[in-house]
Nucleic acid binder design. Sequence first.
DNA 1: GCAGATTGTTAGCCTTGTCTAACTTTATGC
DNA 2: GCATAAAGTTAGACAAGGCTAACAATCTGC
Lengths: 152, 152
Amino acid sequence: MTNNDHQDAVAHEPEPRTADSRAEAFHGVRAARRNELAEDYVELIAELIHTQGEARPVDIATKMGVTAPTVAKTLDRLARDGLITRAKYRSVFLTEEGRALAKECRHRHEIVLRFLLSLGLDSETAERDAEGIEHHVSERTLALFAAFANRS
Amino acid sequence: MTNNDHQDAVAHEPEPRTADSRAEAFHGVRAARRNELAEDYVELIAELIHTQGEARPVDIATKMGVTAPTVAKTLDRLARDGLITRAKYRSVFLTEEGRALAKECRHRHEIVLRFLLSLGLDSETAERDAEGIEHHVSERTLALFAAFANRS
DNA sequence: GCAGATTGTTAGCCTTGTCTAACTTTATGC
DNA sequence: GCATAAAGTTAGACAAGGCTAACAATCTGC
């Protein structure tokens, strides 16, 4: 989701014109970092709904490797930001916006993953690296990754 | 610095055995995220010392695109963590450890950048993406990137 | 249909990373 | 050599993202 519209929609900043291209790059990286966690959650929630039928906090906690209260707090934030809906003691649902974001993330994740695999990387390392890289790849780079992975 | 020893040295965690490979991947990503800023600073400080002769907080603030107090607080943390030394109202110096980290980051950054360029990306986008990606690339992936960028 | 296990929530704490406002120190120009 | 500008620091606020401890709700198996 880096360098594309969605992150700016979620965390729209005044973008202070520092007139330093380096500074701008770091602003972009920081903006991306702010949305990484939300994207990871939304992607995971979509996956859980697909594979388990529902997304329960306990499963999110296990998959994310964090504690239940951390999940609760994060889910509250996602709900506040309009990505999910939830009711006390119930499982989690994605909003339209959340679904769109999840789809986008999944798409991005798959391209990065296929690209790394096509480079000859083992699948375990590819999966780990894709998890970190996917949030920092611009549309332009993603297009090149996709083209490379699909080369004859 | 992702997936290598340094991050664990800086932020050594008990690594709770969740027995979920997904969770482990996220733990790795979170560990990498914690060190990204320190790496960015150290890399920048090394660069400033090289090009300007010294690393002054005001220049760090400009290049990073943050305010002076933010720089001050971050530098205090870097000093606490043994990466830099500093005295009040004076410029910043890297410790041995800081220099080693800076060298490593620079190496990593250059490989990622050259790789993106060799893929056909324009230099501005390549620079921006490299800034975000470099912290999330394992040794194994880095080796593949280097090999690809050096192919005949 | 209730006891105990599982799941979820709340409260409260900590660190990081950002900011603004206000102050101090150092550097600079006459 | 002093006034002012520039640089640096300190104090204090705030949000995010993590934790533990303690409590509440739900589910499950007799």
